[in-house]
Amino acid sequence: MKIDFLEFESMIKDLFDPEFSFDSSLVESWSSMQSLIVVSAIDEHYDVLISHQELKRAKTIHSLHSIVIKKFC
Protein backbone atom coordinates (compact mmCIF):
# COMPACT_ATOMS: atom_id res chain seq x y z
CA MET A 1 0.00 0.00 0.00
CA LYS A 2 1.29 3.43 -0.95
CA ILE A 3 1.04 6.26 1.56
CA ASP A 4 0.10 9.34 -0.42
CA PHE A 5 1.40 12.56 1.12
CA LEU A 6 -1.80 14.57 0.64
CA GLU A 7 -3.83 11.80 2.19
CA PHE A 8 -1.36 11.61 5.09
CA GLU A 9 -1.48 15.36 5.62
CA SER A 10 -5.26 15.41 5.47
CA MET A 11 -5.50 12.54 7.97
CA ILE A 12 -3.42 14.53 10.45
CA LYS A 13 -5.32 17.80 9.88
CA ASP A 14 -8.61 15.99 10.49
CA LEU A 15 -7.48 14.92 13.94
CA PHE A 16 -7.99 18.37 15.38
CA ASP A 17 -11.00 20.64 15.62
CA PRO A 18 -10.50 23.70 13.40
CA GLU A 19 -10.71 25.97 16.46
CA PHE A 20 -7.61 24.43 18.07
CA SER A 21 -4.31 26.17 17.39
CA PHE A 22 -2.44 23.53 15.46
CA ASP A 23 0.02 23.89 12.61
CA SER A 24 -0.09 20.48 11.04
CA SER A 25 2.95 21.17 8.86
CA LEU A 26 5.34 22.08 11.66
CA VAL A 27 5.98 18.95 13.73
CA GLU A 28 8.41 20.69 16.07
CA SER A 29 5.67 23.10 17.19
CA TRP A 30 3.34 20.33 18.36
CA SER A 31 2.60 20.03 22.07
CA SER A 32 3.17 16.66 23.71
CA MET A 33 -0.59 16.02 23.69
CA GLN A 34 -0.86 16.85 19.98
CA SER A 35 2.12 14.59 19.28
CA LEU A 36 0.49 11.65 21.06
CA ILE A 37 -2.71 12.17 19.09
CA VAL A 38 -0.74 12.04 15.84
CA VAL A 39 1.35 9.03 16.92
CA SER A 40 -1.82 7.16 17.87
CA ALA A 41 -3.46 7.95 14.51
CA ILE A 42 -0.39 6.87 12.51
CA ASP A 43 -0.30 3.62 14.45
CA GLU A 44 -3.98 3.02 13.80
CA HIS A 45 -3.95 3.95 10.11
CA TYR A 46 -0.61 2.50 9.01
CA ASP A 47 0.42 0.16 11.85
CA VAL A 48 3.62 2.18 12.19
CA LEU A 49 4.88 3.17 15.63
CA ILE A 50 6.75 6.49 15.78
CA SER A 51 9.19 6.86 18.67
CA HIS A 52 9.84 10.07 20.60
CA GLN A 53 13.26 10.36 18.93
CA GLU A 54 11.79 9.95 15.43
CA LEU A 55 9.18 12.58 16.10
CA LYS A 56 11.84 15.00 17.36
CA ARG A 57 13.93 14.33 14.26
CA ALA A 58 10.98 15.02 11.95
CA LYS A 59 10.73 18.80 12.04
CA THR A 60 8.17 18.99 9.25
CA ILE A 61 5.26 16.87 8.15
CA HIS A 62 7.17 15.99 4.96
CA SER A 63 9.97 14.37 6.94
CA LEU A 64 7.46 12.65 9.24
CA HIS A 65 5.78 11.26 6.13
CA SER A 66 9.16 9.97 4.90
CA ILE A 67 9.81 8.24 8.24
CA VAL A 68 6.40 6.58 8.12
CA ILE A 69 6.97 5.38 4.53
CA LYS A 70 10.38 3.97 5.48
CA LYS A 71 8.98 2.09 8.47
CA PHE A 72 5.90 0.98 6.56
CA CYS A 73 7.89 -0.83 3.85
Binding site: L36, L49, S51, H52
Partner: peptide, 12 residues
Amino acid sequence: MRGHDVFAFALK
Protein backbone atom coordinates in the same frame (compact mmCIF):
# COMPACT_ATOMS: atom_id res chain seq x y z
CA MET B 1 7.02 10.11 33.43
CA ARG B 2 8.18 9.95 29.82
CA GLY B 3 4.70 10.08 28.40
CA HIS B 4 5.62 9.34 24.79
CA ASP B 5 7.69 6.28 25.73
CA VAL B 6 4.93 4.83 27.90
CA PHE B 7 2.35 5.52 25.21
CA ALA B 8 4.44 3.84 22.50
CA PHE B 9 5.18 0.86 24.77
CA ALA B 10 1.48 0.29 25.40
CA LEU B 11 0.56 0.64 21.72
CA LYS B 12 3.19 -1.96 20.86
